[in-house]
Write a protein that binds this DNA or RNA. Structure first.
Lengths: 343, 343
DNA sequence: TTGAAAGCGATACCAA
DNA sequence: TTGGTATCGCTTTCAA
């Protein structure tokens, strides 16, 4: 009984359009458009009639059609390494928030550190005509973005710079942070300090080793290559290396870790080890203060990083024509115990 | 000199279209469409000519235009509570992966547990005509989705059921998990067991208290309301309650926590406390095994949860017409020490 | 204040 | 195997 009494209402699948709404409200389609988009110059009477018809038909504007004509999507894209990583998820959240403030939604995708997958994802986002793009670039060249950028796509790179192209970046002061952390260990009397970090293909790993080297050189300590690990942060390879290094004839008395994955792995290995080296890690992590001993870290600010990147992006979208910008974020040493012990 | 020699190439802002590509390649626009979309029935010669023209012009298909005509976007939406939360970010990652397998990208947004914001985000995603939607619903009614669902939007709810509507859900066995965890404490001789969890507006909190009550009742233990906390997982309120409860005349000898936020807060407070109750937490968390004592948990599987939800969604999108489904995921007790001590 | 008409850039359909 | 034409639902433009 209830069904067939409202013949104007589209049944089952399928959406009603502005045309349907206009017909039902007895106005022109352009008036519907004005009301939906909150534009002025519509009489209160018609405005009400339109909203009534919208409610009646369950109308929802098709943004694809709007974008096709107007040229902007009110969406931005984010491509990062792994959405499940705490650093990435903090980044995501802060970018989502800034996007939301600008009435914009966020596409996000994970590249799994694979340059080809990153490229696919980025280009898919470009095909969707997102207004702008924030990328934590995998290694490799980014020249594939040149045509997109020339066509008007706005890109900001976070945490790492892109390969082979000049573009806006928001980076952490990796070198300075590592210098601070290693210098801290030096000041506590250590001279045999190990470095444990990612493969050197990864920008942040390169920069942090550099900071490590600089700190040692500055202290007049020669770098011992047997104390430097650059490899995957998981698996037997790392554990074997740690065991060998800690159990060897001339073990390190302190360890500096290149990121929190390594810090955690190192903490686990130290637990099993007869010697207890001092430890400082790059990047803070949850419960670092609750471990025994509590872990001293050089903290980054992933929320701040995401905010800075998003704000730069929206400034560009608003038309900021200034030359390419390179923003650097400070790090902060947080002493908690593991780094404040002598050799 | 290099610039003006290729007059066909669009300069500066603006994209080339299939029309441009067709003109440059000397073929019809429909042939370009066939090549771009990998459709058959195009000669090798023309195919090559088209790809050459695509490269030359930097053409990238405008997906909005494609969607307008074809009706699907190859995108799905995800609305959750907080992208920075480890549970949510694991969910995000697993959904991203399944989506990617289906050639689909993911919109994600955080509701911050605010029903109005959730509604805005969901409707924005509907306006973008995502093919489907996965939602971790905030509390409140979800009747606002009825018109969308009737218009063909496919929705799957994860971790919590929606309010006031029947829809596909993928939930954790909250009651059973809590019963298991509390039962574990009972078996170690505890009779004064506290429950610490979220506000009762939140579905999982309600279910987990229920499991707690059932376990106690089953053991013939009366529930003491002074041992039950339902409130925010942060701030002085919780800490004061914990201090009072642990320092009172008749303190609990064991604590069951409703989620990992509470577990961590409780661990911190126990450290400062003179008494050391046994502890079991719902939801596993990183480094739980490295704390002292290591924390016994009832683990969920957020990756599995996301996978199940995404797979159900894509089954629906493929046309699965079966009635509304309610999937339940098992939990798993992981004894680590904190829960294996007597009163 | 209002609305008719002309696109936006692709795909669907059908004729060649 | 090819490609012309109508069309998707909206915004823009412009005349009334």
């Amino acid at each position: 009984m209830a069904g067939p009494t409202t013949p104007e209402r589209p049944r089952g699948r399928g959406r009603s359009t502005m045309k349907d709404v206009a017909a039902l409200a007895g106005v022109g389609i352009k008036t519907v458009s004005r009301v939906i988009n909150g534009e002025p110059n519509v009489s209160a009477v018609k405005r009400q009639a339109v909203w009534a018809a919208v409610a009646e038909t369950g109308f929802r504007r098709n943004d694809s059609a709007a974008q096709l004509r107007s040229g902007h999507t009110s969406s931005i894209g984010l491509v990062l390494e792994d959405a499940a990583d705490p650093f990435s998820s903090a980044l995501t959240r802060s970018i989502q928030d800034i996007a939301h403030q600008h009435g914009t939604v966020l596409f996000s995708a994970s590249s799994a550190e694979d340059p080809d997958k990153e490229r696919d994802l980025v280009l898919a986002l470009c095909a969707r005509r997102v207004d702008g793009l924030i990328v934590v670039p995998a290694s490799g060249s980014h020249t594939y973005l040149l045509p997109e950028i020339e066509a008007g796509m706005v890109c900001v790179f976070v945490d790492r710079p892109p390969g082979d192209i000049e573009a806006d970046t928001v980076l952490v002061d990796n070198v300075g942070g590592a210098r601070t952390g290693v210098g801290h260990l030096v000041r506590h009397g250590h001279r045999r300090i190990a470095f444990i970090g990612d493969r050197l293909e990864i920008f942040t790993a390169r920069e942090r080793v550099r900071g490590y080297r600089e700190a040692l050189t500055e202290a007049g300590i020669e770098v011992d290559p047997r104390l430097v690990y650059n490899g995957p942060p998981y698996g037997e390879e790392l554990r074997a290396w740690l065991r060998a290094m800690l159990g060897g004839a001339d073990p390190a008395t302190a360890v500096f870790c290149g990121n929190s994955r390594f810090t955690v792995e190192t903490v686990r290995e130290i637990r099993r080890s007869p010697v207890q080296p001092a430890l400082v890690g790059f990047d803070d992590f949850e419960l670092a203060d609750m471990l025994t001993p509590a872990v001293t870290v050089v903290a980054q600010d992933p929320f701040g990083l995401g905010q800075a990147a998003a704000q730069l992006l929206f400034r560009r979208l608003a038309g900021d024509p200034t030359p390419v910008q390179h923003v650097h974020m400070r790090t902060r040493l947080i002493p908690r115990g593991s780094g404040e012990v002598g050799p």
